[in-house]
Amino acid sequence: MVRLFRIITHIFFLYVLLLVGNFLQEAFQLFIPGSVIGMLLLFALLKLGIVKLRWIEEGTSLLLKHLTLFFIPVTVGFIEYFDAVFSVRGVLLLSITIISTALVMGGSGAVSEYLARRKEVQHD
């Protein structure tokens, strides 16, 4: 019971940061989503030692552990686009997504690996 209360408090704190992020986005007309601003705020607060890890850890870890659960309803929204996906256009979109994804993976991985190798060589 105490644990549940703690977890709810932790998640509520994350929610407050989300609201602050949303507020900042509106106030300064930022194009970064409020949730990402909230995340950067939490990171800064942890790094500056203003927020202690143990104040938020239990609820935060729980959310991270079940990250995929929260986006199931949005994914189920796919159902509204059924006709659009199972068509020539759908196949085309599928191909575009797959090709783009392959390029992202290969490109980002190759750049990182090349630079990390070069760094190692320099250290030797």
């Binding site: 995340m39 939490l42 991270l64 309803p73 949005v74």
Partner: peptide, 23 residues
């Protein structure tokens, strides 16, 4: 979505939670 919206509600806090692995 009458129920799904309640689960959607936690997506925002879940993004904020991603600060933890970064930290």
């Amino acid at each position: 979505q009458l129920g799904g919206a309640w689960i959607d509600f936690l997506m925002g806090p879940a993004v904020v939670a991603l600060a933890l692995p970064l930290y």
